[in-house]
Design a protein around this nucleic acid. Structure first.
Lengths: 252, 252
DNA sequence: AAGTGGTCTAGACCACCGT
DNA sequence: CGGTGGTCTAGACCACTTC
């Protein structure tokens, strides 16, 4: 059998052993690129971990970690006694604007945002519980509409901790919450989301340019920083013809 | 500071070093149990990895893996130079029937299912592409209604590979797809899902006992086995007042 | 029997955080 | 500065699959 899964030799020529980027990340990224581009075709077998490690002068745990990351992303499948294969399914498809993170990560570059409302309010029961602050303490409440290609896509309602009370309207419209929080030393690490559906309210239907009571996709999220403190609580609703969520599950 | 994060001494007394259950899994499970039960309270600090390893007579990588699994589940947060903490947020909340896997995993025990339709059809364009089979090849098509507490919750439409062509109606109603496929040697490893919303069709609204054109939550999924072959394609719609999806995201 | 991934060990050095 | 997690190494033994 000539198919020994030997990878293209030039894939890993430029590994940087002194820079700050971890080796497992460099290996994983190059491998992911090769798979998504189709250069390593679906269903093809990879070299075994030890051989690959020797060719790259890397230890087996380092190789394993790089491969495991791609397994977690759903790009590779491992079977004991068999080997590692590229999945057959639709791999090359990029995650476009349906990623679950993009509300946080886009912001500055992505679709535009219009600020509808921005007030400082005392945290009510549900908000106070979600953010983990005392009832009645001051939090920032904002309401925005997100546009993609000049068409309304979502209505975003958020409650934020005191750090952002000083943000200007211009900042809120231009920079996205994730970025604003980062600039103030707050980085999100964990988020819990609930996705559902309901009929649009009269106001929402107007903003989204859909019929009253038409279906909307809803998502509510609480995000936590590295210390475990809640730093964002939001309730969003989306036009279902312009937005959907994509999730890849891996059996562990 | 007396808070050295020292864990309860009896947590790890019964580690089985000879059985088939990996040590990192045993450690992780016990830790998860202690966190979810509140025995290790939110915000509390854990011992550092090396100390914990010494106390349990385990190497640092083994401890790290156990902890990392809980970080990936959103139960713990690690910070370099600081330590590992239990997140502050709502942790103890069980995942009940909103897990993204339960359609696959419940089946036998969970809510009941009524089989509406079961036919062998030639794979049409979209189905053939999703399942990765030739156009027109025989696949099993089934349509079911899922009930929870005797109330309709979802309409499930699935296309399945030839392995299941011989399944009886009783099996289909009683055992759940995941279990039936497992019994035939097929195990799912990766699934890609898309979650959206739309208005219910007349037939769906009747089955779900809701108004015509009322909102429904939709999910379509393609599942792959260990070899990367597609083994299930399904389109489901849910009553949004009885079902929603819960997702935990971790920044990696 | 040979080859694969799955687990585990016992170290090492580094980057980052607090004091 | 000491303590923490982040990375990396070089081995070892095992379980599983295929031949």
């Amino acid at each position: 059998m000539p198919d020994d899964g030997r990878l293209p030799a030039d894939l890993f020529l430029d590994l940087d052993r002194s820079g700050p980027v971890p080796l497992y990340f460099q290996v994983g990224s190059r491998l992911e690129e090769a798979i998504r581009s189709g250069r390593i075709p679906p269903g093809s077998r990879l070299e075994n971990e030890i051989a690959l490690g020797e060719r790259l002068s890397l230890s087996r745990p380092t190789i394993r970690r790089a491969i495991q990351d791609l397994v977690d992303k759903g790009l590779l499948v491992r079977r004991r006694g068999i080997g590692t294969q590229v999945v057959h399914g639709p791999v090359s498809r990029k995650v476009e604007l349906t990623s679950l993170w993009d509300d946080l990560q886009a912001g500055s570059q992505g679709p535009s945002t219009k600020l509808l409302d921005r007030t400082t309010v005392g945290a009510s029961g549900a908000v106070a519980e979600a953010l983990g602050v005392p009832q009645g303490s001051a939090v920032l409440h904002i309401r925005r509409v997100r546009f993609a290609d000049d068409a309304p896509m979502a209505v975003l309602e958020n409650y934020l901790p005191p750090e952002l009370l000083d943000a200007t309207d211009e900042e809120l419209a231009a920079h996205g919450l994730y970025q604003l929080l980062r600039m103030r030393g707050v980085t999100m690490r964990v988020a819990k989301q609930r996705i559902g559906a309901r009929a649009a309210s009269r106001e929402e239907s107007k903003l989204l340019e859909i019929d009253d009571l038409a279906p909307v996709l809803t998502m509510s999220r609480t995000a936590y920083d590295a210390s475990g403190r809640a730093v964002e609580y939001g309730t969003h609703c989306y036009r279902p013809d312009r937005y959907s969520f994509e999730v890849t599950l891996v059996d562990k």
